[in-house]
Design a protein around this nucleic acid. Structure first.
Lengths: 246, 246
DNA sequence: TGACTGTCAGTTGTCAACAGTTAGCAATTA
DNA sequence: TAATTGCTAACTGTTGACAACTGACAGTCA
């Protein structure tokens, strides 16, 4: 955001030797964001400015600034004069976001395929193998981490910065609901089969084919929901115990 | 967003009879946004907190809050400890955003077609007629306004709130550069021909066909740029003299 | 002349205090 | 008892002041 368009102002990837020149509110924002993404702050948790200020040892100013930016990212919901809570995505909103995310991935793959290096392809195969192993061992979190890396590679390789910004925005919003993702996507095996087909098309340089393989599944979640009309049993996010999905 | 995802917190479309219950910083944000979108504040303009505070008659707090949110929307660029300026999109960034925007429109059309009412179709035909007339009279601004309405209808009718949020975000970022849009898209006539084909597919209920008609043109801008390698003569936004494009 | 250093004005970052609003509870009334 | 009214505590919104930082400029020295 500065933020949303996180390409501005952040300038991640700074020289290690540099001192921490970030402003207070930036550190606060990152701290709270981590806590939300890790599940430590569950959806619906009220974020009081004064208590946050006390616990982090700063005044309310930087807290307000941080909460505002996180609200812009969709991670917290602010109601004027009533405070902020960690955003709760309804099932419909989650599906909406998921749909948009997949549309962006489709674009990413189409743009990325002609630009992929040999190293990129090797990394994709590697991640795919990882996903297979983790699925076999039923390690859902690890599976999703590898899965995220798989998709992130296309987004990065697409060379489209805005696309990356939007994608990561939606990823942060949806990434917390692993259970929902799973329920929507079907089994891990099904996901792997899809990735196999995609990887095949990518290796053949068939950008359109790869894109269609993804795009064809965009309507699936909504169709599933309309047919079942049921909400998944698990609506709370699964706490990730290992590295972030990003 | 609370904003980014502008679906939260804003609650636009409030009852007319209600008093203005919005907070100060929200009013400031909207005011500055209007000035940016209208071209009154040109890209690159420095936005000093103190001078803004003086001219709007409030303290620096609400100004900071507003600038932060606008930064999240991508309309202003904040550099820590150095201040804020109206975001300048480079040609590449503009093309990136344009590409993403078209991808979102593609999704929107695919989702919207099966949900369109007879009234929606009538409105689409109406807008299409308007575009033809305005193009004939060389009224570029009016053309773009009708064009925006045409696309907005699909986005709204898609029923996907997140899609709308992301779309409008990108629209605000790119909408200021009418000259660039024109240079990228080709003549108005070409655009009308595209819309005719799309409208035809939509009326036939052919969602995939309509979506492909849009999607096929996604790579065009980048190809054009790579071939010419030239930057358009006009990089500054054209000041719109009539209603906003939204 | 050229590079370096110290100073300075202007700016943003942070803080603490005040004012206004909200939600909830207790007291009152029918 | 149920509904309404009036209070209260806690919170957010806004303000003004202070501290810290930045970039530019003038002065100094080789």
């Amino acid at each position: 955001m500065n933020d949303t368009p996180p390409s501005n102002e952040d300038g991640e990837a700074r020289d290690d030797r540099r001192l921490d020149n970030r402003t207070l509110w930036e550190q606060v924002r990152d701290r709270i964001r981590e806590d939300i993404l890790s599940g430590e702050l569950a959806p619906g948790t009220v974020l009081s400015e004064v208590s946050l200020a006390r616990s982090l040892g700063v005044s309310r100013g930087p807290i307000r600034e941080a909460l505002g930016r996180l609200a812009s990212e969709g991670l917290v919901t602010i109601t004027p004069r009533r405070g902020a809570i960690v955003t709760e995505l309804t099932r419909d909103e989650f599906i909406d976001a998921y749909q948009v995310r997949e549309a962006l991935e489709t674009l990413a793959i189409r743009l990325a395929v002609p630009r992929l290096t040999e190293a990129d392809l090797a990394r994709l195969r590697e991640l795919h193998e990882e996903m297979i192993e983790h699925a076999r061992a039923d390690r859902v979190n690890a599976f999703f981490a590898a899965n995220a890396g798989f998709h992130e590679l296309f987004v990065t390789a697409s060379g489209n910065g805005k696309l990356g910004d939007m994608y990561r925005l939606l990823l942060d919003q949806t990434g917390r609901y692993l259970a929902r993702s799973l329920a929507l996507r079907g089994s891990l095996d099904k996901s792997i089969a899809e990735h196999s087909a995609i990887l095949e098309a990518v290796e053949a340089g068939d950008a359109e084919g790869a894109a269609h393989l993804l795009a064809d599944h965009i309507e699936v979640p909504r169709r599933v929901e309309e047919e079942t009309g049921e909400h998944p049993a698990v609506t709370a996010p699964i706490k990730t115990t290992e590295g972030s999905d990003r």
